[in-house]
Write a protein that binds this DNA or RNA. Structure first.
Lengths: 355, 355
DNA sequence: TTGAAAGCGGTACCAT
DNA sequence: ATGGTACCGCTTTCAA
């Protein structure tokens, strides 16, 4: 107010105040300010008030960078995902962030665009940002550079529904994809399906492998069942191409399982192009739910997991690791939600003749 | 390999190497290491090689915190969103991140869970993290604390499809929601609809207000048109409640516009509960696309915007601001995509009699 | 109970 | 062309 201010100096906002400014204003030492703010005991009430007043007056907010610099902790977790715009992933991220926030951690999400080299770049970047820990939803578990990169890291890492040889089991949070697949397969088989195709995502990640395995096992246990697994990539384009091809084979599968949200979109497009009806002409089962899946006609049968929980559990495990504990390995359930997109297969003989 | 290693010393990983270690190993001064790494000129080839070798050998990675501390720049942008699990938002985030990354910026996304006080907390937190700039998709533009909070900030802020009085126009990126709404309304009107209801999100944010305005204007220009705008919140629950109520009125609207993804889900649920068919009994138009919307039966007519672009433009504007430029205000288009969920209204008289 | 000063890991200025 | 050093904003001994 009564401050001396030359006409054209400091014309704009005052610079961000630091502890120094607070200390000066309160007429105390910098270290005292720090003590008050860190809630240290052995500070007189007078001191506390003087400092707090100055803080309020200046609108002072401690610099987290400087704090991190000193303490060595950034209270930041990095989460590397393939594509945040995938609703499955964004829910996982939300679940993780929620849990981390409760413990005072912030989360930085970065997208690898499903490219391993970007992923590695991001890992390095998070390392340079001194993230206290990493959550990884890898684009590919088979990247040869990865294991050594992770070892070089000086912070704990938790894989989200991914597997990696050599990594301790309690550094990975898994879903039991087989369970859901088996339920779905039981359903299809009992409906009379004897030819089932899985249009699968990339085998470089665990969920796809587990689903493929589940189908193979099921086939082994049911010798009269024809199965085909077409693993490729998590894209609509891929889903379209494979569905289109499979459904035009001489004796096409009577049931399709789409290995991801993105693949599902491609499959639906192919179905539409071929004017095939679900479930009359072919049964369809999706992996992972979408907001509108239950409102489709027919409502889509879905193999579900709880993505928010998956993210939350991964975060919890990471927090435990951060505390130096050795948490138990986590495996989360998946299950089949029957809606209306699977039904008995068309009587193939007849159908074929009619065409 | 041939290293001397006492039995129980350094049993685990060596500590993160710093510039000091690099300098020692290369037998040069710390400042020289810095110069080499910052690509400074005036460094001899010998020096460069010595340093680079040491860096490689040690796997040294510069500490971004320390850099930021000195330079004052964190190369980090904070993005505060209501809910990253909303596909619209996550696409916006992806668009923004992509653009920022190209300029070397990282992005921290945090969720406000649609609560203003969490939003404020996050703004403060980003400030303390010394984010170089902020992207805001506010839960509510009417939070009274907000303007002063933003003024206190010493970094540029860009609002994403939000408006705020007193903020310069080029600090906001807007969508032209009226355009898309008008196209949709033209369509409905020409189909013969004379009673249209907008189940709208919260008026505390611009998109909802613009849509409401568009509908009101349209009504004013078409005196024979009955309209109702029910603004509330962006949730399925709200969408369900309002749709359920509206559709049971004595003379219910013949066309519904759902003001968001979440609202849409509620509306669909209500429609299902009431056993109403789209578009035979009622026409339905969605705001903002969903991956499965085009595969619904009927495929959903949708008022679209390009969320990736929206995020990208917001990021570009922020980058310009960061460079000290004064970018032009941005307004992005929206448009109506006709699919199959709107049709002529049922002949109301007859229908009413038949019931 | 409070103050002074070292140091976290870099950058950049000033000498040499 | 290279080395020495102050400093960024804070925490944390150590003394007083």
């Amino acid at each position: 107010m009564t401050e001396n201010r030359p006409p054209d100096a400091r014309p704009a906002a005052p610079p961000r105040p630091g502890m120094k400014e607070v200390a000066d204003r309160a007429g105390v030492a910098i270290s005292s300010v720090s003590r008050v703010l860190s809630g240290h005991r052995d500070v007189s009430a007078v001191m506390r008030n003087r400092v707090l007043d100055a803080v309020a007056a200046l609108g002072y907010e401690p610099d987290i960078l400087a704090q991190s610099m000193r303490t060595g902790e950034t209270m930041t977790i990095g989460f590397i995902v393939s594509d945040i715009s995938n609703p499955l992933i964004s829910e996982i991220a939300l679940g993780a962030e929620t849990v981390l926030r409760e413990s005072g951690y912030g989360m930085i999400v970065v997208n690898s665009m499903n490219e391993s080299h970007i992923e590695l770049e991001h890992i390095s970047l998070m390392n340079r940002r001194r993230a206290d820990g990493l959550l990884l939803s890898l684009a590919s578990e088979t990247n040869p550079t990865l294991p050594s990169t992770l070892e070089r890291l000086h912070v704990p890492v938790v894989l989200v529904d991914r597997h990696m040889k050599g990594l301790e089991a309690n550094h990975m949070v898994h879903s039991d994809h087989r369970a859901g697949m088996n339920e779905a397969l039981d359903r299809l088989y009992s409906l009379g399906h004897r030819s089932i195709a899985l249009i699968n995502g990339s085998l470089a990640v665990r969920p796809s492998r587990e689903r493929a395995n589940a189908l193979r096992r099921f086939a082994k246990a049911h010798p009269d069942l024809q199965t085909s697994v077409r693993s490729g990539e998590f894209t609509g384009t891929y889903g379209y191409a494979v569905a289109h091809e499979l459904l035009q084979e001489p004796s096409p599968p009577t049931a399709l399982i789409a290995g991801s949200n993105q693949i599902l979109v491609g499959v639906l497009r192919a179905l539409r192009d071929l004017a095939l009806r679900v479930p009359d002409d072919v049964s369809l089962i999706a992996c992972d739910d979408s907001p509108l899946a239950e409102f489709m006609s027919p409502a889509l049968d879905t193999i579900k997991r709880d993505p928010k929980r998956l993210g939350g559990e991964a975060a919890s495990v990471l927090l435990a690791l951060l505390r130096g504990e050795s948490p138990d390995p986590v495996t989360l359930p998946t299950y089949f939600e029957q809606r209306a997109s699977s039904a008995s297969p068309p009587t193939t003989q007849k159908e074929a003749l009619l065409r």
